[in-house]
């Protein structure tokens, strides 16, 4: 939305915003915690509030057409893109294209955690969506792998929803999250944080039963019983479409008229910086159209 609005303000009037979900806002919709907008709006907002401010601006800019439930499935080197929406397939070739497709979570498989594969292992963002959007509680006794902000925030969220968070296990020597989140998400609820430890094994046949935690230095191990493992071990830009279009390095696409911003360019910690850089992408696209 920031890129579309910036391009609009720079004089581009014929803009289409394509979104696969049934609403705008992206990942912000499930981030109901505060911590957004301190730089951009100089006030502490929750994710949905931050998104709402942009949704209102997009709605006000009448020439920005929004197509929801529209899933882009194909992109070619000459910017021909195809998207599916219920009941239809649309192919078009815009003069400039801005990709802001966000990121996906790294999974348990990518970090090779050995053991069994029962129900109860969730990427933290999926768990966040279940709790905050669907109203589903994935489990009652939780171990969180990874102490980045998402892991910390989910530890608090599960505690507030009545689950017991047994521990957050972090392979590094320091938490990867903000101090504020370590304090307010873990210390407030006396949730232990095991730094310099890793989850070495997941046990359980049908549903998770316990995990084995190993100290990286001493190699000593202990077990934690739990029914759920949340995996919060980082994000990866989602840019398969740009790869499909034939660009070897999706972060620096060498295709004219194609711009990339937000988490699909690189993974950001702060939404304010996503907004700032996405505005630049919108302006660059407007500039490109003037010269083209």
């Amino acid at each position: 939305m920031a890129a579309a609005l910036a391009a609009y303000q720079a004089g581009v009037k014929d803009i289409l915003l394509i979104e696969r979900d049934q609403y705008l806002g992206g990942i912000l919709n499930q981030c109901i915690h505060p911590g957004f907008g301190l730089h951009h709006f100089k006030t502490d907002l929750t994710g949905p509030e931050y998104a709402d401010r942009f949704i209102k601006q997009v709605a006000a800019a009448q020439e920005i057409e929004v197509s929801l439930r529209s899933f882009v499935v194909r992109l070619t080197a000459d910017r021909e893109l195809t998207y599916l929406k219920p009941g239809g397939m649309v192919t078009l070739q815009p003069r400039a294209l801005i990709m802001a497709t966000g990121c996906r979570e790294r999974t348990r498989e990518m970090i090779h955690i050995a053991g069994t594969r029962p129900a109860g292992i969730f990427p933290a963002g999926l768990a966040q969506k279940m709790v905050n959007i669907e109203g589903w509680l994935p489990g009652k006794e939780i171990v969180v792998i990874g102490s980045g902000d998402i892991g910390l925030i989910m530890a608090r969220r599960f505690t507030l929803e009545g689950a017991r968070v047994k521990a957050v296990v972090e392979i590094q020597k320091e938490s990867r999250g903000l101090v504020r989140n370590v304090v307010q998400c873990l210390e407030d609820f006396q949730i232990p944080l095991y730094l310099n430890h890793r989850v070495a094994l997941i046990h359980g046949r049908d549903r998770v039963e316990k995990v084995t935690v190993e100290n990286n230095e001493t190699k000593e191990t202990f077990e934690l019983t739990c029914d759920t493992v949340l995996v919060s071990v980082g994000l990866i830009p989602e840019n398969e479409l740009i790869e499909q279009a034939g660009s070897p390095d999706p972060a620096k696409p060498n295709l004219p008229g194609l711009f990339v911003c937000g988490n699909s360019l690189k993974v950001y910690d702060l939404v304010d910086n996503v907004t700032r850089d996405s505005q630049k992408a919108g302006e660059a696209a407007a500039e490109y159209l003037k010269n083209a």
């Binding site: 029962p118 129900a119 109860g120 669907e134 109203g135 589903w136 509680l137 489990g139 049908d206």
Partner: peptide
């Protein structure tokens, strides 16, 4: 019901509670 969905049969339920 959401809580009745399993990964691969009895005992492997995906979620434990659904707010209704």
């Amino acid at each position: 019901k959401p809580t009745e969905i399993t990964k691969r049969g009895p005992g492997s339920n995906v979620i434990v509670e659904s707010r209704e």
